[in-house]
Amino acid sequence: MVHETLAATHAVVTLDVGLPGIVWPWLVTINMWAKSIGTGVIFMLFYLLKNYPSESGNLRFPTTVVAIVFIHIFLLFTLADLHQPLRMWHIFFYPHWTSAITVGAWMATIFVGLLFALAFFSAEYGKILKKNDAAFDKLLFWTVLLAIPVTLYTAALMSQATARELWQMPTETAQMMLAALLAGSATMILLGKNLSYEAKSSLGVILGLSALAAFIIYQSELVFGPMKAEEVGAVLEYIKGNGEYATMFWIGQFVAYLLPILLITLSRVGRSESILQLAAILALVGLWIVKHVWLIIPQLLPMS
């Protein structure tokens, strides 16, 4: 459509200001990537405790610590991306509730509080800290419930970016949840070294299916996106053919999705845990690339 218009008009911008360039840079990619791990491991811990309670009990504390670390990476990079980071407190004192940023900031704060409470109930240190698995498991249920909107709010935020047609709901919602399942299962495969092969294999299935679903959605966007809107078609040109981000896009699709799917299949044939771990590492690395490409390409399009 864009090509046809340009061919018909022969119109060229001959004087204008420079385009603003990338407004949300790689800092935001790390934000999304780290949040996927931070909430994803909580989903996976819940799954393991329900299905493999005897062997996953000792994962309560390390998983909680991993979640705390990655949620703080997410928060740190969110803060670093602000042009006025010292005014972050405005979100809590002047909240604007129509904004997904505000809602997300509040939910993430409560989520962090719950994670610290989980850490309290799962830590053991002399007479000061005593484990309380029953309290942990009760609290974990509510933490998992909150982890769902914490995972999804970034999709709402991106859909509020009305200018970027590529990010509209509900596709981004599905991709955020799949990213959390993929990152969570991959991290737990690496973290749960003492888990049985069956438990790890089931995490591999979650990883593989998440990768497959995410891959299908991205490919559907690539093929059918231009039919939705002229703007989406123009954005997708950046990842097609000789597009500026085409190579990076396909590297991401292979490393995050296709290779892990292949490796998980191979690991099931040979019951190989090392191949499964390689799939997990590739999925985590590839997820960053995939997220980055999808974040950057709509920002390359002139808005005016």
Binding site: D81, Q84, A163
Partner: peptide
């Protein structure tokens, strides 16, 4: 706070 959400929107 300079989040640039408005620039993106």
């Amino acid at each position: 706070i300079g989040c640039a959400g408005c620039v993106m929107a």
